[in-house]
Design a binder for these strands. Sequence first.
DNA 1: TATGAATGAGTTTTCATTCAT
DNA 2: AATGAATGAAAACTCATTCAT
Lengths: 209, 209, 209, 209
Amino acid sequence: MPSAPISPRKTPRQARARATVAAIEEAAAHILTHGGVDALTTNLVAARAGVSIGSLYQYFPTKEAILAELLRKLRREHLHDLERAAQQGGDDLRSTTTRMIRASIAHHTEAPELARALEAAESHLPLDAESEALKTQISAIWTATLSTHALPDPSQAAFDLAALTHGMVTRAVQAGERDWDNLAARVTRAALGYLHLCTQDDHQPTQQP
Amino acid sequence: MPSAPISPRKTPRQARARATVAAIEEAAAHILTHGGVDALTTNLVAARAGVSIGSLYQYFPTKEAILAELLRKLRREHLHDLERAAQQGGDDLRSTTTRMIRASIAHHTEAPELARALEAAESHLPLDAESEALKTQISAIWTATLSTHALPDPSQAAFDLAALTHGMVTRAVQAGERDWDNLAARVTRAALGYLHLCTQDDHQPTQQP
Amino acid sequence: MPSAPISPRKTPRQARARATVAAIEEAAAHILTHGGVDALTTNLVAARAGVSIGSLYQYFPTKEAILAELLRKLRREHLHDLERAAQQGGDDLRSTTTRMIRASIAHHTEAPELARALEAAESHLPLDAESEALKTQISAIWTATLSTHALPDPSQAAFDLAALTHGMVTRAVQAGERDWDNLAARVTRAALGYLHLCTQDDHQPTQQP
Amino acid sequence: MPSAPISPRKTPRQARARATVAAIEEAAAHILTHGGVDALTTNLVAARAGVSIGSLYQYFPTKEAILAELLRKLRREHLHDLERAAQQGGDDLRSTTTRMIRASIAHHTEAPELARALEAAESHLPLDAESEALKTQISAIWTATLSTHALPDPSQAAFDLAALTHGMVTRAVQAGERDWDNLAARVTRAALGYLHLCTQDDHQPTQQP
DNA sequence: TATGAATGAGTTTTCATTCAT
DNA sequence: AATGAATGAAAACTCATTCAT
């Protein structure tokens, strides 16, 4: 039941302040990674950051604001990776899609637990303008890519591919898979199948861990 | 950080007790559906069930035990639906897969909020033997179905199809989609693509709400 | 900035519960008397009442609810005393007014600090229906009494007499006066003067402590 | 529970410093007027004054010191107004009293919320020498004025009239009254009644807003 | 067996005040 | 002198769970 958009309380001016904010974010990420959202208490974050609870509240008006900030950071990175994947290389849909899927996998790869926790928290957060914008842009990239192919509804295809990728990756990560190339191949197979681009040449490189 | 498996404290023998347990489960489901996990407090569950908090703890040793029980119920139903879908009808892989996907969608369809909340809670719950068994069985059905087809690793394919389906359905439900036939068609398309069974005849019946 | 009316959370059913509530109210009154509103913290109240903080919140949803309850109690007593003063004795305006003023003084007399603290708090409290009703009734009694006299605006006279009485009594109590008869005489003199009922026979029985 | 008298930390010598102090006082008055004592936080005062929190503490050792200073200013003005009212015009007790009452009303009239908040705070403040002196002088003026009349205890009469006036004015202001002439007439009526100077000629010009 | 009163550790958040720069 | 980052005690309130009746 998100209510009002949440953003940091004040922007750090001095170097010391910037270090404080960084320490808080880092601590929060660590706790989220190892204990999940339930373990994320403001006191614990402050303690782990080596900062007083008062300092935490100088920069983050609520606990949710911390989550929101981490989520924003994650999305920014995701957007950046997707953009690179979309532009770089040939304009062949197959290979572009493959690269974008790899980028999406990478998104979950560096800190899988953190990503999971943040995404789970997302539905409870009142997202601010930047978060919404990032979401829109991510969506737009997929849509733009797919528009080169003749599809009745590219934006729905974008939505479905994102969901499909997300679902497969999340589950695989959760199950402990770490062979990203193999995973990328399987996801790509499903994606191309969805797009009616399936062929027999990318043949099953399977094997579950 | 699940610790020890959790199961109901004692099995209700008398009719009255069975009614009490049912009332508690129903109340918990209702609260979960309408308020999410955060709204699920033991006192509230007891109140809504028209039962004293003491009685609740007679049958459920902890709050998690309630969630675990609801999750078990959900999985039992899912298993049952999948079994029917797997057995019924022709042994054609295409149509069997389609039926099974429809069954999976139905699983999220009746009480989407409840299913979401329970799945989100799952990672925090110490699953008991029955839950594990249910998971294994669900997996087994998919694997068995896919074994009729020549696949290098049917159990991984089962895993991937379940993940793919789950991801697409969850997101669609979250986005407010309610046209299940359309959704089923899209998921099936991706699944058959993954299985290299794609053809051009099931052509895009798309349209996002 | 009062927002929503506040009333007790649940009514105690068992004797034990009633004792708990009584202990809380008593403790709150004691703290209010000796330390003022600023000293009134929920933890302190609970501690002094020999009750856990949780128990306090079983019966009072917020700290304000405690204040509101004490205020209601005070007003109930005031109303009761005023009613007796208004009915009892001759219908002579002079003597009725005198009796009512004495009743008002008595109101501040038993626990002057408590009364002061509660009245100071009143403007911050979102009053509930009963409190409002009590206020109206107290006002009505004065108005009714004064209506027997030919006054252009009895309700304003009621308002002014209450204010005048309240002001004089509060200040006197604050200054440490304890000779209530003397105080009553002075207040009555001002009140009758206001009503144009002044005479020379109630001659100055003054002397400040 | 006032402890040690509180006065400004250091007297501003330079013009800039004087401006800083003025800005702080103004900001505090504004906040007090619009949000009450609860809204008065040192950080907010500093922010509104356009001054750093550190600077605020250069001139006021504690938050209470700010309140104390505002209170002193209010009393100084009140004293000044009373002095003028006492001296100016005829030495007739009736008219002098009337003028003094009008001065007292004016005291609450310019910034009713501020005056209320400050007076409410007074009982918590450890008053310094100047505040005490001001109080004494205000009292003395009333006493001096009343001494011209044959009264057994002029200082008590002074005390009572001040209390009576204060009570009526405070309540009227609180109730939203803004017709100061009407209010002055009513207060005067009570005061003269108290002094046994009542006559029938100042007949009820009543009418509550 | 059922009840519901009681518990208290734990959570978020505020704000007066200090002190390094 | 001024700044503003940092502090941390303290306050309100929640909720899973226990246990006397």
